[in-house]
C-alpha cells in the first residue's frame, strides 16, 4: 500500500512516466494536470458526457472513470496524438470542412470515439456511427454534421488508409 505510485504509459506514441501519482487520481486528471494534455475535457465527471474520451489500448473510454493507476502499462491516445504539425487527421479535417463543431468542448471526445469506431470498422453504417457517438453529448451543434463528417472521413481513410 502506498500513498503515491509511479504510472508509466505509452502516451501518443511516447513512453511517459509520472512519478508520484496519488491513488485517487483519475486518468483524466493525470493527462490534464501532470502531462498538460488538456484536449480531453472535464465535463460531467461521471461518465455521461464523453468529453473526456480517450483511447486506451484501442478502446474509447471515459478518462474520468479510470484511475491513473489502472492505465499503468497501457497505450493511451489523446486528441493531441492525432494531427502532425503539417497535417490534420482526416477526421479532424472532415469535422473542420463540414463545420461539425461550434464551441468545440465535446469535439476531442467525439473525434476519438469516431476514430475508435473507424479503426475497427472502416465502413460503418449511419446507425453504427450513431451508436459509436451515443456516449458523447453535444449541446450546441447537434449530431447530424458530425455523422456526416465521420462518413466523409471514413471514405477518405478507405481511399488512403495511411492518411
Amino acid at each position: 500500500m502506498t500513498d503515491v505510485t509511479a504510472v508509466t504509459m505509452k502516451l501518443n506514441g511516447v513512453t511517459r512516466t509520472a512519478s508520484a501519482v496519488p491513488p485517487e487520481t483519475t486518468l483524466l486528471a493525470l493527462l490534464r494536470n501532470q502531462f498538460n494534455l488538456t484536449g480531453a475535457k472535464l465535463g460531467c465527471d461521471v461518465g455521461d458526457c464523453g468529453a473526456c474520451t480517450v483511447i486506451v489500448d484501442g478502446n474509447a473510454v471515459n478518462a474520468c472513470l479510470m484511475l491513473a493507476a489502472q492505465a499503468d502499462g497501457s497505450d493511451v491516445l489523446t486528441i493531441e496524438g492525432l494531427a502532425t504539425l503539417e497535417r490534420l487527421h482526416p477526421l479532424q479535417k472532415a469535422f473542420e470542412d463540414n463545420a461539425s463543431l461550434q464551441c468545440g468542448f465535446c469535439g476531442p471526445g467525439v473525434i476519438l470515439s469516431a476514430k475508435a469506431l473507424l479503426d475497427e470498422n472502416p465502413d460503418p453504417t449511419q446507425q453504427e456511427i450513431r451508436d459509436a457517438l451515443s456516449g458523447n453529448l453535444c449541446r450546441c451543434t447537434g449530431y447530424t454534421k458530425m455523422i456526416e463528417a465521420v462518413q466523409v472521413a471514413a471514405r477518405a481513410l478507405r481511399a488512403k488508409p495511411d492518411a
Partner: peptide, 25 residues
C-alpha cells in the same frame, strides 16, 4: 474496483470514501 464505471461515480459523490480500494482488474 473492477471496471470502475459505478464505483468511481460513487467515490466522487460520497461524503466518506473507503480507506482502501482493492483493484482486482
Amino acid at each position: 474496483l473492477a471496471g470502475g464505471t459505478d464505483l468511481l461515480v460513487e467515490l466522487k459523490s460520497a461524503s466518506r470514501v473507503p480507506r482502501v480500494v482493492l483493484d482486482i482488474s
